[in-house]
Amino acid sequence: MKRLLPALPALVLAALLGACSSTPPLQFYTLGPLPPAPASTPVGTSVGLVVGPVNVPATIDRLLIVHLDGSRADVAEHHRWAAPLKTEIARRIATDLARRSSYARSVAWPQSSLADPALSVPIDVLRFEADGFERVTLEAVWTLRQAGRDIASRRFSATETITAPTYEALASAHGRLVDALAAEIAAALP
Rank of each mutant, 00 (worst) to 15 (best):
V43F: 11
L49T: 03
V51M: 08
V54G: 03
D61A: 03
V51Q: 04
T87C: 04
I60N: 08
N55H: 11
I65R: 02
H79V: 02
L85V: 06
A90W: 10
A39H: 10
V51N: 04
W81S: 05
P42G: 09
L49D: 08
L64G: 06
V51C: 08
E88P: 01
D61S: 10
H67N: 12
T45W: 01
A58L: 11
H78M: 07
A82N: 07
P42R: 05
L63M: 07
R80H: 08
K86F: 14
V66W: 13
D61Y: 00
N55I: 14
P53K: 06
V50G: 08
E77L: 03
E77M: 02
S46H: 10
V47H: 13
R72H: 12
R80P: 01
K86E: 12
V43N: 14
E88A: 13
V54F: 14
V47E: 15
G52K: 07
L68N: 13
V51D: 01
V54P: 08
V51Y: 04
A90T: 00
P53W: 06
A90L: 07
V51T: 09
P84S: 05
W81V: 03
P57E: 04
A82H: 04
D74K: 14
A76C: 05
G48W: 11
P53H: 05
P38I: 02
S46V: 10
V75I: 12
A83W: 00
L68K: 15
H79E: 14
D61P: 01
P38E: 02
L49I: 13
T87Q: 15
G52Q: 07
A73S: 13
L49Y: 05
G44A: 13
A82D: 10
L64H: 04
H79D: 13
L49N: 06
W81Q: 03
T87S: 15
D61L: 01
T59W: 01
P38C: 03
R72C: 00
H78P: 04
G44P: 14
G52N: 05
N55V: 14
P84N: 04
T41H: 11
E77W: 00
A73E: 03
T59S: 12
H67L: 09
D69N: 09
E77R: 01
G48R: 00
R62Q: 12
P42C: 08
I89T: 05
V47C: 14
G48K: 00
A58H: 06
L49E: 06
A73Q: 09
